[in-house]
Amino acid sequence: METLEQIKKRIEAAVPGAKIDIVNNGSPSAQHSLKIDNEHARDVARFLRDDPALRFDFCSNVTGVDWLDRVIKKTVKTKQVVDGVEKDVDLTSEEKIPGYLEAVYHLFSIAHKHGPVIIRMQTGRANAQLSSLTPIWRSAELQEREIFDLYGIKFEGHPDLRRILMWDEFEDFPMRKDYRPPDDFEWEPTPHDDVLERAKQHYPARPTETELKPS
């Protein structure tokens, strides 16, 4: 299989205007990924699927990732002259990355039996919207519905975008990192749990065994 750099160059030649970035993965798995932009996503995907050398005809895994606002601290060692003496000084710079939602696609090729190539698309957390790749790979149909359900990314061009696992009337997006579950839990028999303290506000006290017995 071609390297990611080669694939990136080929995509940029084939899809004019496409912005492709290689996202490095520091873990021992070394599965690096390609970040593609939303406007050209479907063209890039079609190229990846139809190019005779690549032929990524099998989109295995589609998933969302929620990244909250992050602050990345970078420490750079520089030499500075302080009071006429050269010293090593650590300069810390803080980079603030606003939160975003991400859709990650794992592509394999059944024709050439290679893979994976991972592509990812990013969108803001408010009014999240991405173009759907279901027209390219049918396997994204249910999985994009799941992302819509759990992360709240709207997929433009999806044939049937509805909630899938949660019920239709549900309003929040439970897989987002800032999701807080409601506290109307069912009564648990554990008297230690602080969950129970909150649940007690929703449920009346349960009658004890002696109260239940007919006198």
């Binding site: 993965n25 520091g26 873990s27 798995s29 295995s60 895994n61 998933t63 794992h106 991972i118």
Partner: peptide
């Protein structure tokens, strides 16, 4: 505690491709 990064591992489960995608 694994190092920072991500991994997708898959096996041929009896029902098909079972994969786990982990971000650390």
């Amino acid at each position: 505690k694994p190092p920072v990064g991500e991994a997708y591992g898959r096996i041929e489960a009896p029902k098909g491709e079972l994969g786990f995608y982990l971000i650390s």
